[in-house]
Simulated scan of single mutants.
Amino acid sequence: MSSPSSNVHFLLVPGSFSTPPPYNALVTALTQAGFSASVIPLLSANDGTHLPPATMEEDAASIRAAILSILDHPTSPRNVVVVPHSYGGFPASEACLGLTPSARAASGKTTSVIGLVYIGSFLPVEGECLRDIMSRSETFPPDLQIGNPGGYLPPIPAEFASVILNDVKDPVEAARLHATMTLHSSDSYNGKVGYAPWKEVKTVVVTPGEDLVIPVEMQEEMYERAKAATGGKVKKWVVEGAGHCAAWTRPEDFARATISVLQD
């Protein structure tokens, strides 16, 4: 008989400007815990040669295809837990429409998206887009709020690494991680989600306790909104002392938080 872990795959979804390699640390930690795991690249995050730049909807379609390839694998289908980071919360949420346990069962399917773990992530509701959220807060730089219609956002400057990776004390390591970042589609921030899967699927909100990119207060507000909407079903896990991208540097801590979604 297979173990419960053999029937679950964790699919990581990066944040904006982010490429898959830094997330491999969390993939490894989940694998060492006995689970199958992988990270999918965002179409919207690339070197600027993808033209026109991908939208949030295109990111969502790519993520959905990846989820379905796992759910409906011809020889080893698995349930999926989707693990978005930062901006990834928008396309990852949109991608889950029709993939919940009840929706899949109604179609005669035995696998489904059984959990979501939003790591330092936006937790969107229907009709919400990232640019709207940014426009309501002084936290986000004006160039991200205004955007570059039809183009790419400016690259994250090296001096901003101390904000993204504020918990990384080694400047050489911070520079190495910053170098993995790329350009990001401006128009992807305008995509409005049409579905909030956390209302139907087991969900854990993981907040990095020292996040300077998405302020902890903002993450708490989004969690409380979701908690109220679900009657307390959405759970919270705080990783103390962690910065926005600490899943790259503290994978064991974030693996424990991620796996907690499978617990009753």
Rank of each mutant, 00 (worst) to 15 (best):
S16A: 15
S16H: 01
S16E: 06
S16G: 15
S16Q: 09
S16M: 14
S16W: 07
F17K: 06
F17R: 01
S18H: 15
S18R: 07
S18L: 13
S18V: 12
T19G: 01
T19K: 07
T19Y: 03
P20M: 00
P20L: 00
P20F: 00
P20C: 03
P20W: 01
P21K: 07
P21I: 08
P21Y: 07
P21S: 09
P21G: 07
P21F: 04
P21Q: 08
P22Q: 07
P22T: 08
P22C: 09
P22I: 08
Y23K: 00
Y23T: 01
Y23E: 02
N24V: 12
N24E: 14
N24C: 11
A25P: 03
A25V: 03
A25I: 01
A25N: 14
L26I: 07
L26D: 06
L26C: 07
L26R: 05
L26V: 08
V27H: 00
V27P: 05
V27N: 01
V27G: 01
V27F: 00
V27S: 01
V27E: 01
V27M: 02
T28C: 13
T28D: 15
T28G: 11
T28P: 08
T28S: 15
A29Q: 07
A29P: 06
L30E: 04
L30F: 04
T31K: 15
T31N: 15
Q32H: 13
Q32I: 08
Q32R: 14
Q32P: 03
Q32A: 13
Q32E: 15
Q32G: 13
Q32K: 14
A33Y: 06
A33W: 08
A33D: 12
A33V: 10
G34M: 12
G34L: 11
G34D: 13
G34E: 12
G34K: 11
G34W: 10
F35A: 05
F35S: 04
S36P: 00
A37P: 00
A37D: 02
A37V: 05
A37R: 03
S38R: 05
S38V: 05
S38Q: 09
V39Y: 02
V39I: 10
V39A: 07
V39F: 05
I40W: 09
I40E: 13
I40V: 15
I40L: 13
I40H: 14
I40A: 13
P41F: 09
P41G: 10
P41W: 09
P41S: 12
P41I: 09
P41A: 10
L42V: 12
L42T: 10
L42F: 11
L42R: 09
L42I: 11
L42S: 14
L43T: 09
L43C: 08
L43M: 12
L43A: 13
L43F: 06
L43S: 09
S44R: 03
S44H: 02
S44D: 01
S44N: 02
S44G: 04
S44C: 03
A45N: 09
A45Q: 02
A45D: 09
A45M: 02
A45W: 01
